[in-house]
Write a protein that binds this DNA or RNA. Structure first.
Lengths: 100, 100
DNA sequence: CAGACTAGTTTGCAACACAAACCGGTTTGT
DNA sequence: ACAAACCGGTTTGTGTTGCAAACTAGTCTG
């Protein structure tokens, strides 16, 4: 009965952080997005966005594809299958806790 | 469309922390519980539990009532109306993000 | 060629979660 | 009666981390 909720203590902190949850939620909806889009969509500062993206990348939840559009750099972000799975698992766990 | 999710960045961090979310979830179910019950129910260490409780208390989400049972001290915890409201708000916000 | 802009990354700091050590008091063992 | 173990917590110390400001490297504008 309590054990159901105790799982909370091992919840995926990578996803749980609000800024990153926002990012993966957006990315799960749009499939792929570049740095600037994410910047305005989230309202995060650039530094903050950058570090959250690297954190998600290190966790294996995100791929960053760097390229040039004309002469300007461009970073395209996309969730990996692992990232999608992690989000799904997170949704399920949290749903069990907060849902009715 | 994104603005819906942006609210995540201002989510209540007091509640959002897994250990505390666990605590308030338990407390919202049982109305009141003492330190030792919460200790075993959550599996937290004593120090950890103690500091989360004081944090919830400082936020005005929790009352601690100290008394003696025989000669042993006893701390009884109960959510305040503010605490119940904060949990309800949190559930609603998170539900909007994770619930499909 | 100087200054502003673009697209980020690195650095520095304050806040925080966590566990280990501690503390006042009580019970148990001898 | 004294010490060792236990109870119910609180305080202290430490590593992590979220955040924004400062910086970097390159491009465009006047």
């Amino acid at each position: 009965m309590n054990e159901t909720y105790q799982g909370l203590l091992e919840i995926d902190r990578i996803i749980h952080e609000p800024a990153r949850l926002l990012l993966v939620t957006i990315l799960s909806a749009v499939e792929e997005a570049d740095f600037l889009y994410l910047l305005t969509a989230t309202g995060l500062t650039k530094g903050n966005l950058s570090s959250h993206l690297t954190r998600l990348e290190q966790a294996g939840y995100l791929e960053q594809e760097k390229s040039f559009v004309g002469k300007m750099p461009r970073t395209l972000c996309r969730l990996t299958p692992a990232g999608q799975a992690a989000l799904a698992a997170y949704r399920q766990q949290m749903g069990a806790v907060i849902g009715e």
